Simulated scan of single mutants.
Amino acid sequence: MFSRLFLVFLIVPVIEIYLLIKVGSVIGGVPTVLALLLISAIGAYLVKSQGLKTFSMIRSELGHGHLPAAQLLDAFLILVGGLLLMTPGFFTDFLGIFFLIPATRILIKRWLGLWLQAKLASGRFVMRRH
């Protein structure tokens, strides 16, 4: 697990620097910074609108006496998307927006479900009670 995190923290900045240099060499420095600011503004709008919508759905489910598991997962994915958008760079901005769009968030939730099923089926995911 540690080696995977190490690789992520090593590879992602290299990707970001590479993309910033490539985009900056094509469109220039100022347009590159403006593009990053525009993407961040769009992302902030998506975080706010999707977060408020999800919060409303959580309140509604709780009001009906249901556990809002799917909505809580949505809220977590929106949080991750917002954190990715706070990281400067095109790669993390793309990933962050991917987490914020409802249609792509469905794909992420399906992938997480399949991943969890595979872990449970193989016995590599064990829940312990204390």
Rank of each mutant, 00 (worst) to 15 (best):
M1N: 10
M1C: 04
R4T: 03
V8F: 15
F9P: 12
I11M: 12
V12S: 05
E16A: 09
E16H: 11
E16I: 08
Y18K: 02
L20N: 10
I39N: 02
S40C: 08
S40P: 00
G43W: 06
G43A: 03
L46W: 09
V47P: 00
V47F: 11
K53I: 02
T54F: 05
F55S: 11
S56R: 14
S56M: 07
E61T: 07
E61I: 04
E61C: 13
L62C: 09
H64G: 09
H64Q: 14
H66D: 14
H66I: 12
L67M: 13
P68I: 12
A69K: 12
A69P: 00
L73H: 06
A75P: 06
L77E: 05
I78Y: 04
L79M: 09
L83Q: 00
L84E: 02
M86R: 04
G89Q: 11
F91I: 10
F98C: 02
F99R: 09
A103L: 14
T104Q: 13
I106M: 05
I106K: 13
I106F: 15
I106R: 12
I108K: 06
W111R: 01
G113C: 08
L114D: 09
W115G: 00
L120I: 13
L120M: 12
S122P: 11
G123R: 05
F125M: 10
H130I: 10
